[in-house]
C-alpha cells in the first residue's frame, strides 16, 4: 500500500469545555476520493482546518504529504487546495481576476497565471463568464469557480468542504462528475466533506462517518455495511402479488433465511425505494446469511404468486447514516 497522503493521529481539538474533534485517526491514500460524512457540527470543518494548519490541534498530529501541518502550514498550503464551504470571491472583480490573484499569491508569474486561469475556466465551464464580475455569479457558478480556484496552484491534494451545498441537482451532478474526472485523470487525492449522503455515495472510494467529533466508522460502502453491528449481510426486497401467510412461513423455513417481514410500500422506508406500484402488490423484505435471491424468485413463482419486482438490497449510506446517527442532531439528516 502507498504511503498515506493525509495521516491524522489522535487528532484532538477542544474549545474550552467543548470537544470538537476527539482522538481522530485517519489515513487517506494517494489518488482516492474520501468522503467525510457527518451531520452539521460534527467537527468536519475543524478537522479540515487542522489539516491545513489554520487551527492548532489541542493534541495529536496532522501530517499532509509527509509534512506536519501544524509546524509547517506554508508548505502544506502550497500542495493542498482548499475550498471552504460557501466559498467567497471578490465581488467587484471578474472571475478571471480572482483566479489570477490566487495564482499570484502562490508565486505564479502573471502571464502564466492568466494562461492557467483561462484554461481552468474552460475546464469548469465558465469560459463565457470569465470576465463577468463574480458578484453576478450564481451559486453553482461560484462553486465551479471555487474548484478552478483550488486547482490553479496545481495541488496534490484537494479538500472540498461541502462542495455541493446549495446547488441544484443537475449542478451537483456536473460538479461531482468534474471532481471524479479530476481525481481519475490527474491522480489527485480528494477529500470532501458533506452531509449529503447520496452525492457522496456516487463518487467516493471510501467514506468516514463523523459524529460528535469521533470517526465512528470508515471504509468503502461494503465494509461499512459489514461494520453495522448485527446488520444482516444480504437483504432482498420482493414485490409480490398474491402474498399470503403460508408463503411467508415457507420462505422463513428456507435455508439461510433469517427473517421475513412485510414493509409498508411508502417512500419513508429506510431505503426510500417504493414498490413499482402494481395493484395488490406487497413488498416483502427477506434477510439471509447468504445470497438467496434467485432461489426466492423461483420459490415464489412455484407457489402460484406472481413476482412483480425483486431487488437485492445493498446497504446505502442512508441506512448506515440512520444507524449511526440515531439520537444525533436531527438537523444533520438531510436527504
Amino acid at each position: 500500500m502507498d504511503k498515506p497522503v493525509i495521516e491524522l493521529k489522535q487528532l484532538t481539538k477542544r474549545y474550552g469545555e467543548f470537544t470538537a474533534v476527539s482522538g481522530l485517526d485517519l489515513e487517506i491514500r494517494p489518488g482516492e476520493i474520501f468522503g467525510l460524512l457527518g451531520p452539521n457540527g460534527a467537527g468536519k470543518t475543524t478537522t479540515i482546518l487542522m489539516m491545513l494548519g489554520l487551527t492548532e490541534p489541542t493534541s495529536g498530529t496532522a501530517t499532509v504529504c509527509g509534512i506536519d501541518a501544524t509546524r509547517n502550514p506554508m508548505q502544506v498550503k502550497r500542495r493542498v487546495g482548499y475550498m471552504p464551504d460557501d466559498v467567497g470571491f471578490y465581488e467587484d472583480r471578474s472571475g478571471l481576476d480572482n483566479l489570477v490573484y490566487t495564482a499570484r499569491l502562490n508565486g505564479i508569474e502573471a502571464g502564466e497565471a492568466k494562461r492557467r486561469a483561462e484554461e481552468l475556466l474552460g475546464k469548469v465551464g465558465l469560459a463565457d463568464a470569465a470576465r463577468k464580475k463574480t458578484g453576478a455569479y450564481s451559486r453553482g457558478m461560484r462553486q465551479r469557480l471555487g474548484l478552478a480556484d483550488v486547482l490553479i496552484k496545481r495541488p496534490e491534494v484537494i479538500i472540498l468542504d461541502e462542495p455541493t451545498l446549495g446547488i441544484d441537482p443537475e449542478g451537483v451532478r456536473e460538479l461531482l462528475a468534474l471532481i471524479r474526472d479530476l481525481s481519475r485523470n490527474e491522480g489527485l487525492t480528494v477529500l470532501l466533506s458533506s452531509h449529503h449522503l447520496h452525492q457522496v455515495q456516487q463518487i467516493c472510494d471510501r467514506v468516514g462517518l463523523f459524529v460528535g467529533g469521533k470517526l465512528v466508522a470508515s471504509g468503502d460502502l461494503d465494509a461499512l455495511s459489514r461494520e453495522l453491528d448485527g446488520g444482516p449481510s444480504h437483504v432482498v426486497e420482493l414485490d409480490v402479488v398474491g402474498w399470503n401467510e403460508r408463503l411467508s412461513e415457507r420462505i422463513s423455513s428456507m435455508e439461510h433465511v433469517t427473517s421475513v417481514e412485510t414493509t409498508d410500500p411508502d417512500a419513508l422506508g429506510a431505503s426510500g425505494s417504493a414498490s413499482a406500484g402494481a395493484p395488490g402488490a406487497v413488498t416483502v423484505r427477506v434477510s439471509g446469511t447468504a445470497d438467496v435471491a434467485s432461489r426466492l424468485a423461483a420459490f415464489v413463482v412455484e407457489n402460484g404468486a406472481s413476482l412483480v419486482g425483486l431487488r437485492p438490497m445493498r446497504y446505502g449510506l442512508d441506512d448506515i447514516y440512520h444507524r449511526y446517527f440515531e439520537g444525533g442532531d436531527p438537523s444533520g439528516r438531510v436527504h
Binding site: 489554520l54 482548499y82 475550498m83 466559498v87 467567497g88 471578490y90 465581488e91
Partner: peptide, 13 residues
Amino acid sequence: KGTLSRVMSQPVY
C-alpha cells in the same frame, strides 16, 4: 464575504 478563509488557505503568512 468568505474571501478571508480562501486567501488564508493559500501559502501566505
